[in-house]
Computed example of a mutant assay.
Amino acid sequence: MGLDHAAAKPHERMSAALAEDLAGVNALIRDRMASEHAPRIPEVTAHLVEAGGKRVRPMLTLACARLCGYTGTDHVKLAATVEFIHTATLLHDDVVDESEKRRGRPTANLLWDNKSSVLVGDYLFARAFQLMVEPGSLRVLSILSNAAATIAEGEVLQLSAAMNIDTTEATYLQVIRGKTAALFEAACEVGGVISDSDEAIVRALAAYGDGLGVAFQMADDLLDWGGVDAASTGTLDKNIGDDFRERKLTLPVIRAIAAADAEQRAFWARTIAKGDQHDGDLDEALRLLTLHGTLAQTRDEAHAHVARAKAALADLPDDPIRDMLGDLADYVVARLN
């Protein structure tokens, strides 16, 4: 769902502060997504890359490098690497989830086909690895390649955990750390590594990225249910409940199942485990989440991870960029209020 709908937009302030570097990232992305022999590659890639995404992940790399006093140009290559990895996963995710819309536009798999989305995603992963090698840092290569593997592992774990009402909170955290937080963490960490920062600074950047990424995904999972006060709105928005329809086990549902009596557990077994969903089931699911307070609990968990991310910032240099990173963390959960 991204970062929308709030009055204050720290990612826009950060974008303005990093405008020159971001322009370099965008130019590099356009250059590297070109293909002499397969014109479908830039067609499919441009559809997603130029669809108005916030570029939050590559901005984190640029911001962390700037915060650490980096004066070279390799941070632009690493930021583009991060965006290519992210875009590749989106192309693959839309195939796996059979999605028809992404950022308000038809998905690539709908406009072209699943084969094109998968293969172009593979191409972007390959381009990402080409880019991450160019700075010549084995440690940077290790961080980003490990993140790519962790993302894939998280997606497979989510696939195996879907529809399983015995999924635990520990498994859920492992999934979101894999599919979302790993790239946030790596994006921040390489900004410090490329700057030859002290280990304490690099660890702080990684901790910030992890806390931000976990909070970001928890917030998105909560917003899929319409937020904490969704039950009081009466009519559900048509986009609410996609995770329920796809039978994904997110934190509000996992905790509601854990607190369920026999009748409520039977409801979850029918709708999630068996996929036998009827009119009114989404409203009943939302009623149960509200009854057990799991929407509010998820909001509080997201706030706790934001607090952890902001605590890590205390070890970083005093700089306007550091303040923007703190505001960005606050903004992730401000969407929930």
Rank of each mutant, 00 (worst) to 15 (best):
A7S: 07
L18C: 04
A23R: 14
L28D: 01
A34C: 01
P39Q: 14
P39E: 12
V44E: 07
E50W: 06
K54N: 06
R55S: 06
R55H: 10
T61F: 12
A63W: 12
C64A: 15
C64W: 07
C68T: 09
G69Q: 11
Y70E: 09
T71G: 00
T73L: 12
V76R: 14
V76A: 05
A80V: 08
F84C: 13
T87D: 08
A88D: 04
A88I: 11
L90F: 15
L91S: 11
D93F: 15
D93Q: 12
D97M: 12
S99K: 09
R105Y: 05
N109P: 00
K115W: 00
D122T: 09
A126T: 14
R127W: 06
R127V: 15
R127S: 10
M132Q: 13
E134Q: 15
P135I: 15
S137C: 10
L138S: 07
L138D: 05
L144I: 13
N146L: 10
N146D: 11
I151T: 03
A152R: 04
A152Y: 01
E153M: 10
L157N: 05
Q158F: 10
S160H: 08
S160A: 11
A161R: 14
N164Y: 05
D166T: 07
T167I: 11
T171L: 09
Y172S: 05
Q174C: 10
Q174V: 06
K179W: 08
T180H: 04
T180I: 06
L183S: 05
E185H: 11
A186V: 09
E189N: 06
G191S: 07
G192E: 03
I194L: 14
S195R: 14
D196V: 07
S197W: 11
D198M: 07
D198L: 13
A200V: 01
R203I: 03
L205I: 04
A206L: 10
Y208L: 10
G209K: 14
V214Q: 03
A215M: 02
M218W: 01
A219N: 00
A219F: 01
D220C: 04
L222W: 02
G227Q: 04
S232E: 05
D237F: 05
K238G: 00
D243M: 13
F244C: 05
R247K: 15
L249Y: 01
I254F: 08
R255I: 01
I257S: 01
A258V: 01
A260T: 02
A269E: 06
I272H: 09
A273I: 02
G275I: 05
Q277V: 07
Q277S: 06
D281G: 02
D281A: 04
L282P: 00
D283V: 11
E284Q: 12
A285I: 02
A285T: 03
L288P: 00
L288I: 12
H292S: 06
H292F: 09
G293H: 09
T294R: 14
A296F: 01
Q297R: 12
D300R: 11
E301Q: 11
A302S: 07
H303P: 00
A304W: 08
A309S: 04
A311D: 05
L313M: 08
D315Q: 10
D315Y: 03
L316K: 09
D318T: 09
R322F: 07
R322V: 02
G326L: 09
A329V: 02
D330Y: 08
D330W: 08
N337V: 05
